[in-house]
């Protein structure tokens, strides 16, 4: 078993408290993605799991063992870095082999494992090359190869795809998902890209300013964001957040509605608006509108749509899919919402 437990983790860099107090459970075999804006402490958290950074207080358990004081190599983890951090003076084979060599593993087994990893990642023809002779995607594979040969209990990834171009990123995303399915080990993955988080994760941890906003499966976060921050962060195009007055409520901070939960009408509806930029994606159409009273709103319409820039339209939200957020930014649950005065 290789579940990871973070117990009351606190981390300060000198006088600056980066992570006040985090409690997190990462189940065995899960693909957990830590997601949040840049600088919110994701890398710091991951590096504490890896042992590259010591928590100021709190404990880290991997597979039931308290590893807080352990060296990284003794924790049964491996890590893939954003810059790949390949060893520039070693060949691909030596890069992959290096950790095994340090484990004092017998040669025959080492060769076996390197061959295995190379095969799995399609690196066989590249084994004798130096990292400088590889493309970005190939380097990424070597970095992954280097971590899988060690047979770790927990894989750690720190924004591994952010240096790749868009097409390659999509491809590597699929390969990572396949890797997780075939190995079945626990994986912890850091990214600031919510699309990566949504597509890869079976558990997403949304972080903001050193705090956990919400933990849950992607669809739960999408359908049921517990805070305004999560609502705005998860989903693309972003959820519309309008002031409470939009639904006649002055006692709440904002009301959220996803772009696909807005209906457009030419004659009547709740909010009057004017169509701005229109993006035709084929499968659906995204329209950026300016409402008369509540700022801009994004609407997603299925299929092709005859709407043109400058058209006057009326928008009506689907009441079932309204998300109400109180003054503290937290969700107001449906039953509280119902008891509120109707519009």
């Amino acid at each position: 078993m290789a579940d990871v437990h973070l117990r009351h983790i606190n981390k300060c860099f000198g006088p600056i408290e980066v992570i006040p107090d985090i409690e997190l459970e990462i189940p065995h075999g899960s693909f957990t993605v830590l997601v949040g804006p840049s600088g919110c402490g994701k890398s710091t958290l991951l590096r504490m799991i890896a042992g590259l950074e010591k928590p100021t207080s709190g404990a880290i358990e991997i597979g039931g063992t308290d590893v807080t004081g352990f060296e990284p190599s003794a924790r049964g983890i491996s890590m893939v870095f954003q810059s790949y951090a390949l060893y520039p003076h070693m060949t691909v084979a030596q890069n992959i082999d290096f950790g095994l060599r340090l484990m004092k593993m017998p040669t025959s087994e080492r060769e076996e494992r390197v061959k295995d990893a190379a095969k799995r990642l399609h690196l066989e023809p590249l084994l004798d090359r130096k990292p400088s002779e590889l493309s970005g995607g190939q380097r990424q594979r070597v970095a992954i190869g280097r971590s899988i040969v060690r047979n770790p209990k927990v894989f750690l990834f720190d924004e591994p795809l952010s240096n790749l171009d868009a097409a390659l990123r999509t491809q590597m995303r699929v390969e990572l998902a396949e890797l997780h399915q075939s190995i079945g080990a626990t994986m912890v993955y850091v990214t600031h890209d919510q699309v990566e988080a949504m597509t890869l994760a079976d558990q997403i941890v949304v972080m903001n300013a050193g705090r956990i906003e919400q933990v849950g499966p992607p669809m739960e976060l999408y359908d049921n964001p517990q805070t305004e921050f999560v609502a705005a962060f998860i989903g693309s195009p972003k959820m519309n957040l309008l002031p409470g007055q939009a639904i006649g409520r002055d006692d709440i901070k904002s009301v959220g509605i996803r772009p696909e939960h807005l209906e457009t009408h030419m004659e009547n509806g709740k909010w009057a608006a004017r169509a701005g930029v229109i993006e035709n994606l084929g499968s659906d159409t995204v329209v950026y509108m300016e409402t008369d009273d509540f700022g801009s709103v994004t609407v997603r319409l299925p299929g092709h749509h005859p709407l043109r820039t400058g058209d006057r339209v009326f928008l009506t939200p689907d009441e079932k899919h309204l998300h109400l957020f109180g003054k503290d930014g937290r969700k107001i649950h449906a039953k509280d919402a119902l008891s509120a005065p109707a519009t």
Partner: peptide, 11 residues
């Protein structure tokens, strides 16, 4: 990160 990668590898 080069050192950190090697450190995780047990170096």
């Amino acid at each position: 990160e080069l050192f950190e990668a090697a450190y995780v590898d047990g170096c």
